[in-house]
């Protein structure tokens, strides 16, 4: 295959991959921006999204239902966790990390016990093989390139156009002042955490037709989201999208020409470089 074609495939694959990871990273970033916490179990919300979508599609026979049920269920779980755990430890950043590592194992092992060790996938809502002159590509996968930005757009609308979104932004800027102006910070926290989890779950649903739902799938997604938010700056919407595309394209292109392991190493070196130059990320606020 010629150089250009390979490059084209690398870019295509990288953009699709980046756009999915952007959804997950955006969820992580929102929770961080508002609550100043890092949720290590975030990847597990992604995994839960995928697993629930599999159940919904298999037993209810409808993938679109999965797209509704999975985020709803994960929102419920996230709300419970927020109330019973995070609030109890007063959103202390380090305790939150330890608690969410605990949550990671609990979710993972429960899924193992109930869903099992298998990796299942579902029939895509439509089957289309896009035939480029040089190679074929999954039409469903290509559609992700439109669905993911759509969801990110809706999220942005929510944050910038609704009252709750306004509250979230206010809390992100200054919690005390927001509280003084009557923002129900407790509820805003819960909403932010749940919204972050829902985005991860939606990403999980979207990938089941071409990746499989598998109980250990969360960790890799978590690590890539971490890279994205570090490069883009935690709490920045724009930064997340840009960084996700950077990471995705690096991954795609380095992978097709060299090796995917090397791509991840290059991505991490980039993280190191960004940190040395701008410890808060490309679009992160200066501290």
């Amino acid at each position: 295959m010629s150089l250009e074609v390979t490059l084209f495939l690398g870019l295509l694959d990288g953009v699709v991959f980046g756009l999915i990871m952007a959804l997950i990273a955006l969820g992580l970033s929102i929770a961080f921006g508002v609550m100043r916490i890092v949720n290590v179990a975030h990847g597990e919300f992604y995994m839960l999204g995928a697993v629930i979508a599999w159940y919904a599609t298999t037993y209810l026979g409808n993938f679109i239902l999965g797209l509704i049920i999975a985020p709803a269920a994960v929102i419920g779980l996230a709300a419970i966790v927020e109330r019973t755990v995070l609030r109890k430890i007063n959103y202390n950043p380090e305790s939150t990390i330890v608690a969410t590592i605990g949550l990671l194992y609990i979710i993972q092992q429960l899924v193992l016990a109930i869903y099992g060790p298998y990796a299942y996938n579902v029939e895509p809502p439509f089957y289309l093989r896009v035939d480029f002159p040089w190679f074929g590509y999954s039409g469903y996968k290509l559609s992700i390139a439109f669905v993911s930005p759509l969801i990110m757009g809706l999220t942005a609308l929510f944050i910038f156009k609704t009252r709750l979104g306004l509250y979230m932004r206010a809390t992100q800027q200054d919690r005390e002042i927001a509280q003084a102006f009557g923002v129900p910070v407790g509820r805003v926290y819960m909403a932010s955490f749940a919204l972050g989890a829902a985005l991860a779950a939606i990403a999980g649903v979207l990938v089941v037709p071409f990746l499989q739902a598998y109980y250990l799938m969360g960790l890799e997604a978590l690590l890539i989201s971490f890279m994205i938010v570090i490069i883009g700056g935690l709490g920045s919407l724009k930064g997340t999208l840009v960084a996700a595309l950077i990471i995705g394209v690096i991954d795609g292109v380095v992978s097709v020409f060299f090796s995917p392991t090397l791509a991840k190493i290059v991505g991490s070196v980039l993280v190191a470089a960004v940190l040395l130059v701008r410890p808060t990320g490309l679009f992160g606020a200066e501290r």
Partner: peptide, 9 residues
């Protein structure tokens, strides 16, 4: 690895 298309070229 979780995605493979990039290997086939």
């Amino acid at each position: 690895e979780t995605t493979f298309t990039k290997y086939f070229p």
